[in-house]
Design a protein around this nucleic acid. Structure first.
Lengths: 123, 123
DNA sequence: GTTTTATTTAATAAGTTGCTTAAATAATAA
DNA sequence: TTATTATTTAAGCAACTTATTAAATAAAAC
């Protein structure tokens, strides 16, 4: 909360800086949740898995490993991270686990998916 | 492109998997760009800097360091990463560098900022 | 020119990430 | 029960990230 003014510029308006600090602090919860979501989605493999789950509704680790040409344990560890964060859920059917998106968490994700599709054109 | 079917489930529809692979490959450019954006925004400090630049239009490294109570070199390195990615730009005024958002890059960022503000309520 | 101020750059160290390999569960099949 | 299949978990390691500290630029002030 204490603001150490380190630059001596006249324009470094202390009131403005204190306001910024207050705003950031006030939105702390939002920043924490959004950073968690973005850091998870900001990985090539996980972003593709999320996209695929949106596309196909549900997939098992084995299918995802085939599609992305990666090892099953590597996929499994990404799935666990996303499940821990509440982004995806699983249901069991015999030996197979089916993973799917948790819909309430996907508002920003939908924007991201749409954006990925439109970025294709400007390749 | 070669699809190694590793699971033997009947439901593992090879045609579906090949379609998924083709879709992912087709959107490769979109995934690459989006992963870059999200991995940059998926860091607590950088997300706050982007938010602050949106809020205040422009800020110098020194102001940002004051607001976030961090060292100037730490901020400077985050700024460089975002500048390299084309997310922000700088203009010089004497000794001071003012950083600001590159507007054409902020479509997804605006959704993110809005979301951060609304997450506040559900704290 | 020398000093001060704002910023960047570079070197380094601690922490994190994400893969691989091997072992452990869990459910089904023989 | 033993073997097979789908998946997870754990250990180990290489690569990446991000802060710190100290040194290097760059512009302005003295």
């Amino acid at each position: 909360m204490k603001l150490e003014i380190t630059c001596t510029r006249a324009e470094a308006n202390q009131k403005q800086l204190l306001n910024c600090q207050a705003t950031i602090e006030n939105l702390d919860n939002g920043f924490r949740q959004m950073t968690k979501l973005l850091s998870i989605a900001g990985n090539d493999v996980r972003l593709k898995i999320l996209f695929l789950l949106d596309l196909e509704n549900e997939l098992c680790p084995c299918d995802i490993a085939d599609i992305l040409e990666m090892s099953v344990p590597a996929i499994s560890q990404h799935l666990r991270k996303m499940k821990d964060a509440g982004l995806i859920a699983s249901r069991r059917e015999g030996q197979t686990l089916y993973y799917s998106l948790v819909k309430s968490e996907t508002q920003i994700l939908n924007n991201i998916f749409t954006s990925i599709k439109s970025l294709k054109k400007s390749a």
